[in-house]
Amino acid sequence: MKAQSRHNLLSQTLRYGLLIFLVVLFLVPFYLIVRNALLTDRQITSLRWVWLPAPPQWDNFRKLFADPAAPMLTGLWNSAVIATITLVLQMLFSSMAGYALARIPARGRNAVFFLILSTLMIPGAVTFVPSYAVMAYLGGVNTRWGIIAPGVFSAFSIFLFRQFYLRFPTEIEEAGRLDGLSYFGVYRHLLLPNSTSILMALGVLTFIGSWNSFLWPLVIGQDPSAWTVQVVLSTFLTAQTINLSQLFAAAVVSVAPLVVVFLLMQRYIVEGAKFASGKE
């Protein structure tokens, strides 16, 4: 018995040691982003390692926003607008379609469901060339709506909402119908208020995905006025047009809002991950 508890203590210590080592490893990139953003360029490229910026160069942020060649504010604004509209419209349209597919009896419902499911089979990023062709025809290149539009319609989201509403108790809905509510009334007054868990879970994931997406905004937003924050960063990175400390200051500015959202909404994000993988 004694040997067993000593063995347990040892394995416990090893496990926590490993966990703490991994925590440090996972936090290193965050540390580097913040450290570099607050150093001078000379300190970044120095061979003498600087652990903490002393004094911190807050001026790097002022210079970043004052730089006329760096459309950082435009990028942040574009990303915020695009991610917010994508979030709202995707949740609205997907929940509507999910509800109809789960609960409104109509001829052709199975056909519609099958059609939506079949688009789920297509790997999204692969179709960017054909999608670009269509978007160019529709005149969406270099516009915010051109970046937003395809992201609003998600077969996967519709599918998850349908699954959610299939499990929704029919009694509530039938009571609403008996009280004279139309299908729209049932959706608006009974279903939506009771869908906050899935709306929050998928909504946060949609927002993060939209804010962080890169390939489609890169393809559509070719003019600097349509750049999202990711495209701005990528341009800095590949063209090396600004100095290193400003580059990291830009990274801080683009990541900080999302880290805040992430920490505040973590509960919902975990739920969203479970929804998305079929664990909920």
Partner: peptide, 22 residues
């Protein structure tokens, strides 16, 4: 939380840190 938080970071930012610093 610590292991999950990199999910909030974009590939562009990770690429930046990996390429320029790490």
């Amino acid at each position: 939380t610590v292991f999950f938080i990199p999910s909030a970071v974009s590939y562009v930012v990770a690429a930046l840190v990996w390429k320029v610093s790490l």
